[in-house]
Simulated scan of single mutants.
Amino acid sequence: MKRLSIGLAGLLLMVLLAACNQEEDKKQGEERVTPVETEEATEGDIVIDKTVYGRTQPLTSTPIMVQNPGEVDTLEVENGDQVNEGDLIATIKTPAGKQNIRASRDGEIAQLSLGKGEIVSTENPLALIVDLEKIKLQFTVTNDIRSLLDKEDKLTTIINDKEYKAKVTSIGTIPDDTGLYPIEATIENKDNDLLPGMTGKLHIPEKRIDSAVIVPTEAIAEENDESFVYVIRDNKAVRTIVSIKESQSNQTAIEGDVKAGDQIVVNGQLTLTDGSKVNVVKGE
């Protein structure tokens, strides 16, 4: 009886081992499927920019001067007030009598620092009348960047995280003390969001690639001095060699056996080999 029990146990063990081996063989026979995320290759233009920084100034700034020194008798305006040409700004008591000071042009009052009873001289302006409907952006560039600019060019400009278009109005031909060339551009300030003294970040197009196949930069991998992407064809990842024409942080223009509309792997490619079966899933 004891021998019979041992024999049955051995037979059961052999059956279990055979079943496990069959299951393992089945798993090995199944092709692994890798989940990946993809994005579509596109066709378009890619522009490489140079970035420079400038500072905003009033488009025009007209000083309000007095003819004779004297004491401020009345003030009709404050900083920030809008005035029209001919509006009364202040009256000044002088030895020759009272003098009316009027606006010489339309604009906004700025840098008014005197009050009633204070003395104003003929050497310093009582205030400024500035034009803020348009803002002037001043910046300096090297000669190489200067050669990229033409009058009337409209440059993308970021000020306080908001995008504007700055039109180039002046390109200096003589460098300043730092060896850089002064450039001026104007920005429409219809909403009065811009004030003098703000910093603007300008993007100056340096190089343009027309009608290129563009893929996400993160899709490109490198190995053995070769650049490649994985293109999804028939639910398989096809390793495709490409050459890079120009690259930006997010987009890269390429040449190779890739066309607009192809699905390119952007996440999961590190575990792929040529011909790997894939399951395309959406990212977060």
Rank of each mutant, 00 (worst) to 15 (best):
269 Q>P: 06
270 L>N: 13
273 T>I: 12
271 T>K: 11
260 A>T: 08
263 Q>E: 13
265 V>F: 01
252 T>N: 02
261 G>E: 00
260 A>P: 09
265 V>A: 05
256 G>D: 00
247 S>V: 10
260 A>V: 15
274 D>T: 02
272 L>P: 08
252 T>Q: 01
272 L>K: 07
262 D>W: 00
274 D>Q: 03
272 L>Y: 01
263 Q>I: 11
252 T>F: 08
262 D>Y: 00
261 G>Q: 01
269 Q>D: 12
259 K>N: 03
246 E>A: 12
263 Q>S: 14
247 S>L: 08
245 K>P: 10
243 S>Q: 10
269 Q>E: 12
262 D>P: 03
248 Q>H: 10
260 A>Y: 05
258 V>R: 05
260 A>R: 12
256 G>W: 00
270 L>W: 05
244 I>N: 06
255 E>L: 13
263 Q>Y: 04
251 Q>A: 15
262 D>S: 04
273 T>K: 10
243 S>G: 13
251 Q>L: 14
247 S>K: 15
244 I>Y: 01
258 V>Y: 04
273 T>Q: 06
274 D>A: 04
250 N>A: 14
266 V>P: 08
270 L>A: 09
248 Q>G: 14
259 K>E: 05
271 T>Y: 10
249 S>P: 00
256 G>P: 01
243 S>W: 03
243 S>A: 10
262 D>I: 01
272 L>W: 01
257 D>G: 05
263 Q>M: 12
256 G>E: 00
245 K>E: 12
264 I>D: 08
261 G>M: 04
249 S>Q: 08
243 S>K: 15
249 S>L: 10
244 I>T: 12
267 N>C: 00
274 D>G: 05
259 K>A: 07
248 Q>F: 08
269 Q>M: 14
249 S>G: 02
271 T>L: 10
266 V>A: 01
247 S>W: 12
256 G>A: 02
258 V>N: 06
249 S>K: 11
274 D>N: 14
247 S>Q: 14
260 A>E: 04
248 Q>K: 13
267 N>E: 07
269 Q>Y: 12
272 L>A: 01
273 T>L: 03
260 A>W: 08
244 I>E: 02
274 D>H: 06
260 A>I: 10
253 A>Y: 11
268 G>Q: 02
251 Q>H: 13
253 A>G: 14
273 T>A: 03
248 Q>R: 13
258 V>Q: 10
265 V>P: 02
259 K>P: 00
266 V>K: 05
244 I>W: 01
270 L>D: 10
265 V>M: 03
259 K>S: 09
258 V>E: 09
249 S>V: 12
263 Q>R: 15
274 D>P: 09
262 D>C: 04
247 S>Y: 11
243 S>N: 15
245 K>D: 09
251 Q>N: 09
251 Q>T: 13
268 G>A: 07
252 T>M: 03
250 N>S: 13
260 A>H: 04
